[in-house]
Amino acid sequence: MNNPFIRELLDKYFRGETTLEEEKTLREFFSRDVADPDLKPYQELFSFFQIEQLQQPSEGLEERFFEQLSKRETSEPKRPEAILRTLRPWLVRAAMVAFLLIGSWWIYTRNEMNPATETAAIDWSKYEPETPEEALRITKEALGKASRHLNKGTSMAMEEMNLMGEMGKVLH
């Protein structure tokens, strides 16, 4: 065949300047038996390209590829440090609440124990009247007493006010 033409095309091919038409010519040339020993090594290359080109991607390959990709992005298990980073503000808050609770509990119990604020809480139950009737009578007495004192106070105050009023009248 016209070997000088082929050589020229090959040179062009390796410079990356061939057109699709010219590449097709090259493939067709090398698909046949090549006699020229100088061109023989290139035959393998072009026949390989031809075989490769015959392989067709299976249906929906692209879709599957991108699907897998997006799946990896969304459901990629977080690494421990990433989890820690998102949880950190909450951990800090929880720690503070725990600290405050323990602190207030400590203050509370310390106050109870403090001998300055007296011994343990009073056991009031032993001072309770035996029967509700008795308790009611005591309550009534207590209320009556409070009431009498209260009224005595107010009436005394009223008397004073009246007295002052009288004095005011005398003075005028």
Binding site: Y127, P129, P132, I138
Partner: peptide, 12 residues
Amino acid sequence: VVYISPKLFQMF
């Protein structure tokens, strides 16, 4: 000392 508890008050 006398103490009347809330429970007693409820019973009244």
